[in-house]
Simulated assay, not measured.
Amino acid sequence: MIEWRDRGLILAVRPHGETAVILETLTRGHGRHLGIVHGGRSRRRAPMLQPGNEVEVVWRARLDTHLGTFTVEPLRTRAGDLLGDPLRLAALSSVCALSAFALPEREPVPAFQARTEALADALADGAGWLRDYVFWEMALLEESGIGLDLSGCAAGGAADDLAYISPRTGRAVSRAGAGAWADRLLPLPEMMLGGPATLQGTLAALTATGHFLEAQLAPTLGERPIPPARARLIAALQRAL
């Protein structure tokens, strides 16, 4: 019997049989990991098994290749705390869905896991999360091998005049460097360069990161569509303007 104990963030919950669920977690030491929770659909357990909640899990299986089972203890219930704030709840749902979509299974990503947990805390606390969410999506792209390089102009222009992103390479381009190609480039929002965190700036930044999620990340994952939770976040941001 193989057994380990870890803690992390619930990403998704799916029914399994009549009373169990398959729990998907982003753990600190074992990465994105799945397991069966027997009785997970009960009235007592279901409320704590919600995406965004922090839990401690014990995973057991006869072989490492088996799905295995989880024993779960709640540590922090974030999802219920956000029911009165549809925008922050949509952001938390998007974080969980994109993590489940993009991260490899059973591959530890300790730095990214810590960043994801910190964002979940910011969402629960309600402070500074707009900027954190934008840079979290940028970190997710980097974790997936599609990092954006906004440190200088890809065309040799001035670093203090950056205004665009190449949709192919993800590198920044200055106004002067873009020249006649400007209409073929993505706008580079000031927020992605450290500018003010606003709703409008967040939407502009997520338009840019969304291009790379759809055009570059999704094709590497079998052309699966981007999780609908992200589109719901965009819609919530638009309503909040």
Rank of each mutant, 00 (worst) to 15 (best):
R131T: 13
I36V: 15
A120N: 11
D125L: 14
E18H: 04
H30N: 07
L11G: 03
L148T: 00
V57K: 08
R88I: 04
C153G: 04
V109I: 05
R184I: 00
R45V: 05
P47I: 07
G68L: 08
A229N: 13
I36E: 06
I2Q: 09
A20R: 05
L237E: 13
Q238G: 07
R78G: 03
W129I: 02
R171C: 10
T69F: 05
A240Q: 14
R5I: 08
L34F: 09
C96W: 11
P225D: 12
F112H: 08
R60Q: 11
A235M: 10
E107N: 03
L148K: 02
E24M: 08
F112L: 13
D64V: 03
E18Q: 09
G52W: 03
P47K: 09
L26P: 00
P86L: 11
T65D: 15
A122P: 08
G128A: 14
R232M: 13
E143C: 01
P108S: 07
G8T: 01
L123A: 03
A197L: 11
T207K: 12
Q50P: 10
A229I: 06
L75C: 06
A218Y: 03
A111K: 04
R78L: 13
A139I: 03
D125Y: 12
E105Q: 11
A218N: 00
A155M: 05
L213F: 15
A124G: 14
L188D: 01
A91D: 11
Y133T: 10
E54W: 12
R78K: 07
L130K: 13
R5W: 05
D64H: 07
F112C: 01
L92V: 07
A91N: 12
L188E: 01
A102S: 10
E214P: 02
R32I: 02
A120V: 13
L199V: 14
G145V: 00
L82S: 06
R184S: 10
A178D: 01
T169F: 04
R45A: 14
V57L: 09
R78F: 07
L193K: 10
I234Y: 14
D81Q: 15
A102C: 09
R44F: 04
L75H: 07
P196R: 14
H33P: 05
E214A: 15
A114D: 12
E137Y: 12
A20H: 06
L98S: 09
A114P: 01
I165R: 03
A79R: 12
R14N: 10
A102N: 07
I226R: 15
L11Y: 07
E143D: 05
L9W: 01
D132T: 08
A155R: 15
L11D: 08
L241I: 05
E105K: 12
G156W: 09
G145S: 05
G128E: 15
A102D: 09
E107F: 03
H38P: 01
